[in-house]
Design a protein around this nucleic acid. Sequence first.
DNA 1: ATAGTTCTTTGACTTTAGTCAAAGGTCCGA
DNA 2: TCGGACCTTTGACTAAAGTCAAAGAACTAT
Lengths: 290, 290
Amino acid sequence: MDHVTAFRRFNRYFTRRIGVLDDHYLGQDRPLGEARLLFEIGDGASLRELRSRLGLDAGYLSRMAKALQAQGLARLSAHPRDNRLRMIELTPAGRLEVTEQDRRAGAAAAGLLEGLGEAQRAELTRAMATAQRLLRLAGITVTLVDGAAPDARACLDAYAADIDARFPEGFDKDDLVRPREVSGDAGAFFVAYEEHRPVGCGALRRLEPGVGEIRHVWVHPDARRLGLARRLLDALEQEASARHFTVVRLDTHAALTEAQAMYRACGYTDIPAYDDNVYASHWFEKRLDG
Amino acid sequence: MDHVTAFRRFNRYFTRRIGVLDDHYLGQDRPLGEARLLFEIGDGASLRELRSRLGLDAGYLSRMAKALQAQGLARLSAHPRDNRLRMIELTPAGRLEVTEQDRRAGAAAAGLLEGLGEAQRAELTRAMATAQRLLRLAGITVTLVDGAAPDARACLDAYAADIDARFPEGFDKDDLVRPREVSGDAGAFFVAYEEHRPVGCGALRRLEPGVGEIRHVWVHPDARRLGLARRLLDALEQEASARHFTVVRLDTHAALTEAQAMYRACGYTDIPAYDDNVYASHWFEKRLDG
DNA sequence: ATAGTTCTTTGACTTTAGTCAAAGGTCCGA
DNA sequence: TCGGACCTTTGACTAAAGTCAAAGAACTAT
């Protein structure tokens, strides 16, 4: 049986068997739309945000929000800085309702797991975690963007903040690549997106003829341990090949031991220092044949 | 993180991410109810069957069936032997529509898996198979029923047909336990149900004071490899303990090698023949302490 | 300051989904 | 062969979900 068939079979089984359950317990005595909205408000959100998250019509959402307010479950207010936007947040009663929903759904889930022994439950949890990890990874797309694009800069800022906290000596944002170093002929910049949010990046720049350098491979904390860094690395290497680089190099900081392990696992070998990067303690390179 | 939380997290992620996809692609330009019905008709079914499978109101279903017929997608006819029932089957146009739905959903699934490498796809398939197996097992309930109940007899009939095909010498239905041997003080009979369908059984009867015999442990072919036989065995042993039996015995046929392996794995030890069952080649017993 | 854009609200719908009860034909067991 | 049980159809509803367009307030860039 091929993977697509297996995937669809699971999909069908799961939505029929479990998905239904969740919806059923979520709704109870309230229209499902309202219940979902209530749940999605969480710690407050703008109507605009909810509209795009839930994919609802503006008019429809407006009315539902009003209905929740009329029931004393939510409160609408103006956005502090943009008066076009409306913020919605839960009242204590609304919060209570959400936790009650949660309790019911939890009880239903517990009832469902009751038929399994402890070892089997652990096995199920493990299998689900694996499936979820791979599904998330499958949903992430790695795309080439301009080095000056807002998403690229946002990733680099996050990257800089991240390593600034991890390097004992800190990290100076001026040491990031310049947009022009990773645009056009000079290099390339990739951003990984999960549901339209940037969750990782990686840069490639020309070091000398035939030699590229990979820099700033970074993955958002929420998206770690999925195997995304490898995918970024793959994309960067493919780009390097397309540019007829025969070698890619990179350096890493002593503090980033996982990164070093990953580079070695991906076929990179230790080489002597090829630059005087003050943050670097290890230098690697990899021959590309493709 | 406990199993219930992990379970619900996966549930939420999966329904949001994947479940939606299926419904969306399934429906396309047709109401979801009709699309589901169309799909569920398959190679023809009675309205009654569809009603219980989909849990729909009789009137609602009747109207939807008529709508499908009006669109030229299905054909209604009388049941050949029971004129109260109506049969519904797909027309060629309906069949085309279903395969088209199927193609689209398959393409969507394939697109989703595109981001993964072959090894990762295999890992995902494996994880999903594990999860599905355990979820199915969790959904099966093992209940005590009267030995003369129709479900009990249906299981025994299926069991008899099953082993009749597997034993070289065949199997005579008269050698099954009698209802009264497994009812009341004399013994017990368990049936395993999956979504209200009997999918397995097991009998316990008193052999002599303090000693019980387990017989006819059977699992429906569709429900094998889930770990259900062990659950039936557990239920039978618990029942035996409750009846203050200190020992349970059982015999098996030479052809049933998997069964023998399972009994050994569950703590049964080989003993000399305790009866002259013509079908038996191995005899086992297990001490119960509880 | 002005034109264009963004966001929400409101009114006026339509479609889908689902329920309930009455009625009529059919089957089955006594 | 008669009464009760079964199955489907039909009429008459309701509630939920969703769509579309107009209008008004507020922001943004030029």
